[in-house]
Amino acid sequence: MTLHHKDILQTGQQIRLTRATLTSARPKILHDHDFFELFWVQNGQVRHHLPKGAQTLTEGDMVFLQPGHHHGLQGRGDHALVVSLCIHPQTIKSLAKRHTSLNGHLFWSKAGPVRMHRDIRQLAALNHAAVMLERSANDTLAAEAFLLPLCADLTAEAHPDTIPQWLADACNAARDPAVFREGAAGLVKRSGKAHPHVSRMMRKHFGETPSDYINRIRMEHASRALTTDSDPVSQIAADCGIPNMSHFHKLFRAAHGLTPLQYRQKYQRQIVQPQ
């Protein structure tokens, strides 16, 4: 089965974003497409089927595909959510022509589908950019505004990681609901350091306070729950460790530009997978 960009992109569009909750059914056949595709795992685990085998992808994994690449997606467990972009070939060709440093990387690699990863902080930034893209006209300007910062970041030369290991470990631990429900105190407790010291180091390395960091993770958790679960908003807020609904709405709207109910109504949808 071949998917065609003319059936997905409307007149004047160069890019289109789709959010999909994958079923656990294995795809009967692999499909390809005449456009460039980028997708990432927003939540859960995904089995990515390719002609030479399958890969298990987890939250934050992203894959760059060229026209003609055959593949299929299968959810693993509950709430496997992916975000996918259909990108007009002309946009990708134009970027490579004007930015030669992209050649050999990502969409422009000769090694087949390219797999990358975004950590929790990078994934939050990616999701924010995705929301901005959804609000746009999906034209050339919007496509490049989304793609160029991402591609520049991924192709940049790696720099030594100067974040202290204790801080990196604490931030990774903060992704656990059992930790972020405790708020900033949960992160600080896992660090084994004094709160003022943790605050200074987080401002230095992340440019935000422990509370900012935790609330960002909470709002990402809430956004995933709103699009994959049918639990009441009050239950999702409680699961985030924020029983005060007024405070929860304030944080969510600041993070996503919509109320929780508006976000659920806009993004919650079921998937139809190529079979």
Score class of each variant (00 low, 15 high):
T2G: 02
Q10A: 09
G12V: 14
I15R: 08
T18D: 04
L22W: 12
S24Y: 10
L30E: 01
H33N: 07
F35D: 11
F36Y: 11
F39Y: 02
F39H: 02
W40G: 04
L50W: 08
G53K: 15
Q55C: 00
T58H: 14
L65C: 00
H71C: 01
L73I: 05
R76N: 14
V82Q: 10
V83P: 07
V83R: 09
I87E: 05
P89L: 10
P89H: 14
T91W: 09
T91M: 05
K93T: 05
S94I: 00
L95P: 05
K97L: 14
R98G: 02
T100A: 14
S101T: 03
S101K: 09
F107N: 01
F107S: 04
F107Y: 11
S109T: 04
A111K: 13
V114D: 00
M116H: 07
H117I: 00
R118E: 03
R118A: 07
I120P: 02
L126F: 09
N127W: 15
A130P: 08
L133S: 01
S136D: 08
D139P: 09
T140K: 13
E144T: 11
L148A: 12
L148P: 03
A152C: 14
P160D: 02
D161L: 10
P164Q: 01
P164M: 01
Q165F: 09
A168E: 15
R175F: 04
V179Q: 15
G183D: 12
G186K: 06
K189L: 15
G192D: 01
H195A: 12
H195S: 07
H197G: 02
R200M: 15
R200I: 12
R203C: 03
S211F: 13
H221G: 03
T228S: 09
T228D: 03
D229V: 02
S230T: 08
D231P: 05
V233G: 01
Q235N: 05
A237K: 08
M245T: 04
S246R: 13
F248P: 00
L251Q: 13
L251T: 12
L251F: 09
F252L: 08
H256W: 09
L258F: 15
Y263A: 09
Y263W: 14
